[in-house]
Design a protein around this nucleic acid. Structure first.
Lengths: 346, 346
DNA sequence: CTGAAAGCGCTAACAA
DNA sequence: TTGTTAGCGCTTTCAG
């Protein structure tokens, strides 16, 4: 009457015995490898089902693949990431690959490095790095070790594929929208990047540059007004406070991210200003937040699912042929106008 | 001038050679195992650093541990989970364990099973299942295979530890708060559970029962009014629409989750009703959403970080001693009153 | 088309 | 305290 202890795991050997074949054959069936007859294949599959066998990924990883792809996501709170993940997991659902997520810190480079290292140590067959803040050399080192796709505009590296959204266009969409509503004093809140080596690569810098360019193209070079804080709710709050102290207040604020826009809304509310009556506010990312009734934020939609699906496609290709040239896919965002923006001076 | 190909991974053998010791010794140093002199230990550590050696988790997993704990989270969009994760990762930061997340579907039992299986296959040393919807037998099967902690009120199983919040108390806090504000017609929106086998275990059922009990205790048994939808924004929206059609409209709505409350707010807004002027609304979970100015939702705080930290503590204990008795920790929630609730009839 | 055997990197008896 | 050795479960040459 002992408790049945930790039941020993069913192994490939058990399956081989049960099916009266060699372990090699079982292995081949598992991997749909070339060189097994239909009859054998079926026999083995029956044994697998009968015994409830499941391949042990760690053991597979010692020789071949782990059938696992690691996804590093820097900030689990950012509501833009789930969409990417959905696209990713859906695209991988029909494959043998399993997605595991690594929680990177928020804008925390050491934390990111820990996660990528941990994933390499755990034999990931491929990795997707979502909006990493790590330096380019680090990314390339990772990519040289394991097939890698970076989501976000991280330059035309030959070591990894990238999927990104055209943030220059996105910024132009916002500015165009606001100009169309009659706004001229349109301010922008950006995320300040301290590390100059990667400055030009980051979405925030690109959005800010897109804002500048669009303002110039609309003949509003004089009105360019950028506040540098951070892509957080607090950053938005503090940025808005700065803007409200201006002698000439902006009539519209383009926040570099939805979460920033929320902070802006908070500051405006506190100052007794109404949106969009007194000031129009636009965000970026079209997160689920933006769609909420009481917020109803005009934003830029990055088509996260599509980004994720594209990343999955690229990664599978790269796993199949690690040596192939790098692909850099750029998707176009769309503007989603909501109630937080309205005609100027209204 | 060949490209340096995939540089071979540095192994324990390389370290042993470099340090002029056996692989056993290196292995011992890695695991801080008993039986190495300080001098040897230091020598080995220098070699490890010099060669940039990192243990290969898959290989470790074949014999001992992978130093990986798997966290299954059912719905990455639920803003309550990041807090739990924070508590969890922080508690594990100083250990050798790495956290990897498995994306379960939303209320999708097969998806959950896939993730737990995948984690077992990948040799996780322990697992934390956050608010699983899987059946009790499945959970016990998992727990029998690998040390497991379940976050959520999933009964007093002897096979796994649980950390949960006292939802009965939480519901009572909300009802008490509303009654204190003079409300009597207090309705509740719950998540309908179809599977009867786990009905009593789920938080939604407990919250609903807590609501019922609290109403009775306040002498409001007659006013008990429960709408069954789902714990989603849409569920809240639809639930509120039903409530608005009542002959005697409730003056307060207790939504079983913040996300549900958002749907309620949307429906009320659409109906031209003001909050809290016409109707008070309370949620549950005190997610970051609730704190947002334009929402400012009264809610119940579950102390997610604390839950996560507790789960980590229990899991480490269970990994160290898988046979030890199951612990069931219950934490007390607190009420966070915000602007979405106010005196009745005001 | 199938199987025997070597070995991936590491840990855990057991000896020395 | 240290080293030798035998695997963990699987994939992969290489013969049959």
């Amino acid at each position: 009457m002992e408790p049945p202890a930790q039941a020993r795991r069913v192994t490939i050997v058990d399956v081989a015995q049960h099916a009266q074949v060699s372990t090699t054959t079982v292995s081949k069936v598992l991997r749909n490898a070339y060189g097994t007859s239909a009859a054998t294949r079926e026999k083995v599959q029956r044994s697998i089902a009968a015994l409830g066998y499941r391949p042990y990924a760690a053991a597979r990883g010692m020789r071949g693949r782990t059938y696992t792809v690691g996804v590093m996501l820097p900030d689990i709170r950012n509501p833009f990431f789930p969409d990417i993940l959905d696209g990713l997991t859906e695209a991988l659902r029909e494959t043998d690959y399993q997605v595991l997520l690594g929680p990177g810190g928020c804008n925390d480079e050491p934390a990111e490095a820990r996660v990528t290292e941990a994933m390499i140590d755990r034999g990931m067959d491929g990795m997707v790095l979502i909006a990493p803040v790590s330096s380019r050399p680090h990314l390339e080192r990772v990519a040289r070790t394991v097939p890698t796709v970076v989501v976000g505009p991280h330059g035309n590296s030959a070591a990894y594929d990238t999927v990104s959204d055209d943030d220059t266009l996105g910024a132009a969409l916002v500015v165009g929208h606001l100009v169309g509503l009659g706004h001229r004093r349109i301010a922008h809140i950006e995320h300040a990047e301290s590390d100059p080596t990667r400055l030009a690569d980051m979405p925030n810098a690109i959005r800010a540059e897109g804002y500048r360019r669009a303002m110039r193209e609309h003949g509003l070079a004089e009105e360019i007004d950028i506040v540098s804080t951070t892509y957080t709710q607090e950053g938005g709050y503090l940025g808005a406070r700065q803007l409200l102290e201006r002698a000439r207040r902006p009539t519209a604020v383009f926040a570099g991210a939805d979460i920033v826009a929320l902070g802006v809304l908070e500051a405006l509310d506190e100052a007794g200003l109404s949106v969009p009556g007194d000031i129009s506010v636009a965000g970026y990312d079209n997160t689920s937040l933006a769609a909420l009734r009481p917020i109803s934020l005009t934003s830029v939609d990055q088509a996260g699912r599509q980004i994720g699906a594209e990343a999955a496609r690229l990664l599978l290709g790269r796993i199949a042929d690690p040596g192939r040239g790098a692909a850099h896919v750029r998707l176009s965002p769309t503007l989603v106008a909501r109630r937080s923006t309205a005609a100027a001076g209204g």
